[in-house]
Design a protein around this nucleic acid. Structure first.
Lengths: 340, 340
DNA sequence: TTTAGCACTCATTGAGAGCGAGTGCTAACA
DNA sequence: TGTTAGCACTCGCTCTCAATGAGTGCTAAA
């Protein structure tokens, strides 16, 4: 599709533009990257690359900048994989694989680490409860009509809910129900909780059962708040593409809207492996000058969440991909180990 | 100290400047606020106010802007209390006093509400565990050497910790210890846990006791992450004082540093009632062009946390104070009601 | 096919002029 | 003695205009 020299030129332009954020001229390339040809030749190549849509020209007397299509080609076919220094990898692993850390905290740590590593905004979708396997459910009577439900899910994720009942229950009754529920639920996920099981729970456990099923059905929807978060917003403000404060404000606002983030992440991190969404490919308008790099993470072999970074389209894709991949792998390892 | 007319002039200048963010000239004041004197007279007053430090002049051919001292005087002696519309108050109460809400969620809701209400950044310090009274402690054996500790604290705040022991414990042993611990701790706070009680726990409960005491002593320090948060950062970016992106970035960074926030909040919300810290009074340099309005909140009659807002010194202090006060009161009410 | 040369474009920069908002001072007035 | 009208003055802001220079496309020669 593109001959060797055009590829070299495109790569050179992207590398330079990513570094400097300035439109790149033919002279610059001739000087910095020794392609063995003169600026004039490069100009011809650049004109071709612009015609085929890989480059854009802000105005006639400026250099070229990569288009979304240019970045896309770069990501798919041009860039060389980035590798982190061994010490860096070890630092990351050391911070995340701390066995003291609960999965929730580890994910927060991962978000901070990723933001630091990439100097961008990091996005994390925590495991959604309904994909995790029940490990333990515990009901404790606090007052006669107030019961604490503690849910322990597969990779040691703990959730609490408080329920209030009309009827009064003795601690013993509650303990019995707790044990019975435990037997019924152990080893399955929210998702696998079919209607039959729910009906059984209602008929077996009376009011408590009813309230519990309500709890399940309302889907813990309000959890979205806690389930997705963005870290490192300040990193992005210093980038030249956000010198326009309006745009920065719009983006920040989006980052505070959990619904928006959720949409963005779920439309991006569809399949496995590292995904890159570039500029206009983004469904959400205020982010169309940004790119998003995401990766799913696992408990064992089940996808339970995703994490990634968000930055201007002018980003070091190679490094971003490597960082997201590394952190996602490490998180998966951690969650899977927690399993034991 | 200041005669009546000077006070009127100062107030007029502050009101106008807060609204427009433009230096205020003598003509503007003569026109808008009917003081019954000519611009020339007002000019004389303004010159006096500048000499005594209540006003500043960006340059000689501009109007005046309030100094920190001016704002301070305004807050202490000049401003009239703001009152919210009844419908607004009801809306807030309705959103926060939802009995379904856990205290944690209510506080998050309060933060969002406060940010919305004041169009600023809201800051919340959640109740710190060590000031709350034990309501219930529950140990559950998940595996022979892995125990889930669930702590229920006074206004229905639930914390979980996972501990791993060298020794193996049977579910029954764990249940026994749980019950005994419960008896020992019920009704006191972390703070009141003297050395004697800790020693008792170690000697009574062996390894589990030791691990628990370690948990207590390490003070749940890592909790800072969850204990303080800032919401609504995007609100502040659109204000003219943050057109300088550098400054905005510095502030945002500060908001992501929990340590910094913690310092700021604890040095501000010292005594009870609404506190206002203006500009230079702020200990933290990047915030010295900002003011902070905070208020403590209560469970019963005990201060357990604080909340507030952060904005440029040019803020509607009256409204800010009213909003912070209202939200703090509502949160206190909620937490105290949860008590039942 | 490559390259040197050259005319051309256009964003950016800086100087200078004019504008106007706002001041301080002075002198007259109540 | 306090107030006010008048006026000269200051200075940031905006506009214009020319100069600059980076970078281009095109042409013609190698």
């Amino acid at each position: 599709m593109l001959d060797e020299r055009k590829r070299l030129v495109l790569r050179a332009i992207i590398d330079s533009y990513v570094e400097t954020a300035e439109p790149v001229g033919s002279r610059t390339i001739a000087r910095k990257h020794d392609l063995g040809v003169s600026p004039a030749t490069i100009r011809n190549e650049m004109a071709d690359l612009e015609e085929t849509g890989y480059l854009e020209q802000p105005h006639v007397s400026a250099g070229r900048i990569p288009s979304d299509k240019g970045y896309r080609f770069y990501v798919d076919s041009l860039m060389e994989p980035h590798t982190f220094a061994k010490t860096e990898v070890e630092k990351i692993e050391k911070q995340l694989l701390d066995p003291q850390l609960t999965p929730e905290r580890a994910l927060h740590a991962a978000a901070r680490l990723l933001a630091l590593l990439t100097d961008s905004v990091s996005l994390v979708v925590a495991p959604s409860t309904d994909q995790l396997v029940f490990k333990h459910i515990q009901l404790v009577s606090l007052e006669p009509n107030s019961i604490l439900v503690t849910l322990v899910l597969h990779p040691m994720i703990v959730k609490n809910r408080l329920i209030r009942t009309e009827q009064e229950y003795s601690p013993e009754e509650v303990a019995d129900i707790s044990e019975a529920l435990n037997k019924k639920l152990k080893g399955i996920t929210y998702r696998q909780l079919g209607m039959t099981v729910l009906r059984e729970i209602i008929s077996d456990f009376g009011e408590i059962g009813r309230v519990l099923v309500e709890l399940v059905l309302q889907g813990l929807a309000e959890e979205k708040e806690e389930q997705i978060y963005a870290t490192g917003a300040s990193n992005i403000l210093t980038k030249p593409e956000f010198r326009d404060v309006q745009r920065a404000a719009a983006l920040l606002e989006a980052l505070e809207e959990k619904d928006v983030l959720m949409n963005v992440m779920s439309s991006t991190a569809k399949s496995s492996g590292v995904q890159v969404v570039i500029g206009q490919e983004n469904v959400y308008a205020p982010m169309q000058t940004c790119s998003i790099v995401t990766c799913t993470y696992y408990v064992g072999s089940d996808v339970v969440g995703a994490l990634g970074v968000l930055g201007p389209t002018r980003m070091d894709y190679s490094k971003m991909v490597a960082a997201v991949d590394l952190v996602a792998r490490t998180v998966s390892l951690l969650l899977t180990k927690h399993d034991r």
